[in-house]
Design a protein around this nucleic acid. Structure first.
Lengths: 328, 328
DNA sequence: GGCGCTTGTGAGAGCGCTCTCACGGATCCG
DNA sequence: CGGATCCGTGAGAGCGCTCTCACAAGCGCC
């Protein structure tokens, strides 16, 4: 570069990298020259010699089509990007649709093309994170993996606490027959939120009753079906904790379809606090996940690992909060 | 690499790049060796010598916070990623929040770190695309720029046609006083959809009446406000074309708040066909944008430009379609 | 059978950086 | 005031690839 504009290539490199062993004079000279010719270091050349790529993958498994209609990922992506960019790294966005993609990505990561992976994984049996760690690529998951014998790093919202929070809230606001539309039980978030429901019930001295549990999924169609079955089976239900906002919205439709009122007659509380929750008519009471924080936290954790800090907590659980609106 | 496992480095390189001037024998030998040691070429080294980076930026301007609650981008992102990945390139995701970010990105792009840019830009006065083209970085916009003297490349949905389609549809289904909740007029999509409305009105032999136009924005809150003003001013309105689905959802709230019924009494048609449109209660009639196609098309266009084809159409407009549901 | 032509291959330079090593000059201590 | 120490700098190697150039071998042609 502008080694011409002052000193030697080595010194210029030192300045640009922020090395400490540089005189104040050399620093200003190089910086001025760099600005003058609007110099931009060639990342490829740097990467070639350092062995780092200074980029991080944001990897999402796409077998679940729903994922892409979920604003969740976009907000995670955004906060991850912000955090990554603030360290001068780049975020490489990647989608895996099929099994072969996984192999391809693994080879890609093994080739040193990314320094670490942020893995948005919803189904826990996947062995990809293990493989990534095995080949030396630090990985941080969003959401607790179903089984974690390998001690994978993950960041999660407090799903159990949130389920308990919603349930306790409904009980404490006078409802006596609080049911739940659970999420898919092959997903950790589904399990945990149901476990939270149970904890909330039992914390109030009540008995956990399986007939008050209707398993759906995180979609509104699934929520509708599950809530419909629930209301047929147990017409005495006066409050529903749905495992996601979309499921809650479906449940509200089911409540209406059963000829009942939402709010006074049957309270409904969701989970996530997606934008549609506030815009829903009536506005949906829900448990808010700190999505941006989730993204920031997992990215920071990954970057710290990339920097070599390995004595970090594998598990990070972020608190959720109850957002009271009109439905419960 | 496995130059050892057979031939010279040069030949190995030729095989791996898919060069034609290689014998069948050399090809198989190299391929086998590569597979055996699960060889992955070092992209940094390649990039250093070729001058290409084999990566493409997906750049979104984030001054509009709404953008991130909009599923639109996520779906664009996904189809862009798919298309980019299918050519062996990577997608670098980038967000620009502030003016200084723009400078930084420009320097970054000028440094040859991306071969091209997919720019999700909603406000048209931005000079970033011009600057990118000037420094030799091919750029394709999503959405028509407000002024296009520089002949920028863009891909857009047929906003004018869609506005006309919705308006004609409402008129042909028996409504006599069709109004519009327009989008922000400093955005092309807002302008175009309004122009489409006007065209639809005039195509039916009616006179364009400004008192039937209430300018909002693409959010549901904006739609609510605009529709509320509209209904106060013109209680005779019996159909509303809203410039976005979110605005339509806000408009529906306003119709309810005015004590009127949606559908028979006041029909509402949105634009976009976001997932929430189908899930809305009642399900929203709307004009569907082919979002995935938009993403695929703009990416293909960019890749073609990167490959050197420069005699491509600057303007690509994709057709929209009317989706009839319950509200109109 | 010598000429040019095509085709496949190897040797070697060099992309733009980082980083190690060696060295000159300033500083410090006895 | 001489030797040890330290700090800032320059020289130069080399990261893993691509690509140009030269060359050897095979072919048809007059």
């Amino acid at each position: 570069m502008a080694a011409r504009a002052g000193v030697s290539r080595a010194t210029a490199s030192r300045v640009l990298r922020g090395d400490t062993k540089v005189s104040e004079h050399a620093r200003t000279v190089v910086m001025d020259a760099a600005r003058e010719i609007s110099y931009v270091p060639n990342l490829a050349a740097r990467s070639l010699v350092t062995g780092r790529s200074d980029s991080v993958a944001f990897l999402v498994e796409e077998s679940e089509e729903k994922m892409f209609s979920d604003p969740f990922f976009l907000r995670m992506l955004r906060s991850a990007q912000e955090t990554v960019a603030s360290t001068g790294r780049q975020l490489v966005f990647s989608v895996m649709s099929r099994r072969e993609d996984q192999k391809r990505f693994l080879a890609y990561a093994a080739g040193g093309h990314v320094d670490g992976v942020l893995l948005m994984s919803l189904h826990g049996k996947d062995r990809l994170p293990q493989h990534l760690e095995e080949i030396g690529v630090p990985t941080v998951l969003s959401g607790r993996p179903l089984s974690n014998r390998r001690r994978l790093w993950y960041v999660d919202a407090d799903n159990v606490g949130g389920g308990a929070l919603a349930t306790s809230y409904l009980l404490s606001s006078g409802h006596t027959c609080v049911a739940t539309v659970a999420g898919p039980l092959d997903m950790c978030a589904g399990q945990d939120r149901l476990a939270g429901y149970r904890a909330g019930i039992e914390a109030a001295g009540l008995t956990y009753d399986e007939s008050l549990v209707s398993v759906g999924d995180f979609t509104s169609a699934g929520g509708f079906d599950a809530a419909t079955r629930l209301l047929e089976r147990r017409p005495d239900v006066d409050a529903i904790f749905a495992a996601s906002d979309l499921a809650a919205i479906g449940a509200i439709r089911a409540v209406h379809a059963a000829g009942r009122d939402v709010g006074d007659d049957v309270a409904v509380v969701g989970f996530d606090d997606i934008p549609a929750a506030a815009e829903h008519e009536p506005p949906l009471s829900t448990v808010r996940q700190p999505i941006a924080e989730l993204g920031t936290t997992m990215t920071r954790l990954l970057l710290a690992r990339i920097e070599g800090e390995d004595d970090l907590p594998h598990r990070t659980v972020l608190p959720v909060e109850m957002v009271r609106r009109a439905t419960g």
